[in-house]
Write a protein that binds this DNA or RNA. Structure first.
Lengths: 263, 263
DNA sequence: CAGTGGTCTAGACCACACT
DNA sequence: GTGTGGTCTAGACCACTGC
């Protein structure tokens, strides 16, 4: 492998072998390029929805061939960080796109195709700043007692309350977030966080269980306390696997189901 | 695009434009190659676990450059149909591999990492041939009344019954499948189906709900009937999106959870 | 038309696994 | 060493988009 004659000495991506370690850690050129593009994405050099420079431009900028840049972008596209559009360019991925209203929501109506039921109606129950408990802090990589934004809301489809969500966000990164803001933004919450706070959720992990609601939860979802619900605990991450959101959802599955593809 | 001077006139992959249709349907060379490799996989020219010919060999066989074969194989690898191993070759994917014991099972123990609890203990409750009802038939692409193999079993982890599964398989493709066979095979069921019947499950879809068990189900899982369980309905497909299995599972989520990655 | 991503080639060289 | 997949290059041409 060879190093790159570049502005930043390329400290990202794979470490240049701390000498004496078992793995010499070979890193192909295209991965170094990928790391550099990633840095620019992170730094906000190109905003969500915008086009990044053309492959030729990037190749010139990094002094490599177009094919190498291409491979780097292929990787980023595979991770859903950018979207390629033939004839137009490569664009920074965003949650604010027509195509898939809720990229991370895998709940589908039992009847027919998705989306036919229209967008969810949202009802914000509360949104306030609190001190993080031990568990929330640990999950979000904060210290107990740090400020977090806590929100609770109900999503309804065609008038039927279907999802009850509790959301925790690091207070630091989301100063000034209000219930009004959450309620008024027309698209997905993640799109608002992108636009208003520059925080882009890039991937997420979910743990799913079957549970029974307590009395309050049952009332909010208009079901009896003996109705089994899906408990979906999601941790969403920005770049570099930094956790930025914890979300605990209760899903009714009498009219909807969680859909998953395996391969 | 140009056609290929090949044994089979390449009727797979994209149709050569039925004349007069809106889409001229351009198909790149590498996709045609991919289709041809797919046919060989389907035809069993190379068995699961075996190596397919080297990129150079395939390039010579199809009269294209190595790069083009490479792109085709990249696609197949992305779909988990083959596995690349540097320095060794490209291998037909199989469910009978050390690495991931259960490729399609996303239930993990709550405590620590997976696999530490060891393999599941299986207990076959029944395995018999029945006539397909309307719903089963529709899901498996059969006619109502066609023969299907129906099996029921319980999977336990460290002695705790955790999964109750009902499995339906087309009788046609699995003649002679017995309970003894299911019980005696040491690895995943899908590995046995590959080995003994040449049927390879390539992808699957799951619909997940929260439900309460009936008395019989509760007894088998050793829980009370008021214990909410995950209902996981899985349809597994072979090549060409042909459905080959319907599986309805009930998962206990008091000690395990369904894990999913989103991006 | 020019500019973008997408395909295809041919050849050189590298990293890895086996023998 | 030999053979495999993996990287990198340079150049040609194709398909799609929008001016």
């Amino acid at each position: 492998m060879s190093s790159l004659p570049l502005p930043a000495p390329d400290d990202s991506a794979p470490p240049p072998s701390p000498a004496g370690l078992p793995a010499p850690a070979f890193s192909p050129l295209y991965q170094q390029i990928k790391g550099l593009i990633l840095q620019s994405l992170q730094a906000g050099e190109w905003k969500p929805g915008e086009a990044i420079p053309s492959e030729m431009d990037l190749a010139a900028r990094f002094r490599v061939s177009q094919g190498t840049v291409r491979k780097a972008i292929d990787d980023l596209a595979a991770e859903n960080l950018v979207v390629r559009r033939q004839g137009k360019g490569t664009f920074v991925a965003t949650h604010a796109e027509r195509q898939v209203q809720y990229r991370f929501l895998k709940l589908l109506p039992d009847t027919g195709d998705a989306g036919v039921e229209g967008p969810a109606e949202r009802h914000i129950l509360e949104c306030r700043r609190v001190r993080a408990g031990a568990e929330i802090a640990r999950t979000l990589g904060l210290r107990p007692g740090d400020s977090v934004v806590q929100a609770r809301r109900v999503l309804s489809f065609v008038g039927v309350p279907t999802i009850l969500e509790d959301i925790w966000l690091p207070g630091q990164a989301f100063k000034g977030l209000t219930a009004a803001q959450m309620a008024s933004y027309p698209g997905p919450t993640y799109a608002m966080l992108e636009l208003d706070f520059g925080v882009r959720m890039v991937r997420a992990e979910e743990k799913i269980r079957a549970v029974l609601p307590d009395a309050a939860q049952a009332a909010l979802l208009q079901v009896t306390p003996s109705t089994p619900l899906l408990s979906v605990e999601r941790v969403a991450y920005t770049y570099n696997d930094v956790p930025m959101e914890l979300r605990r959802g209760l899903y009714r599955t009498d009219t909807h189901h969680y859909h998953n593809e395996l391969s």
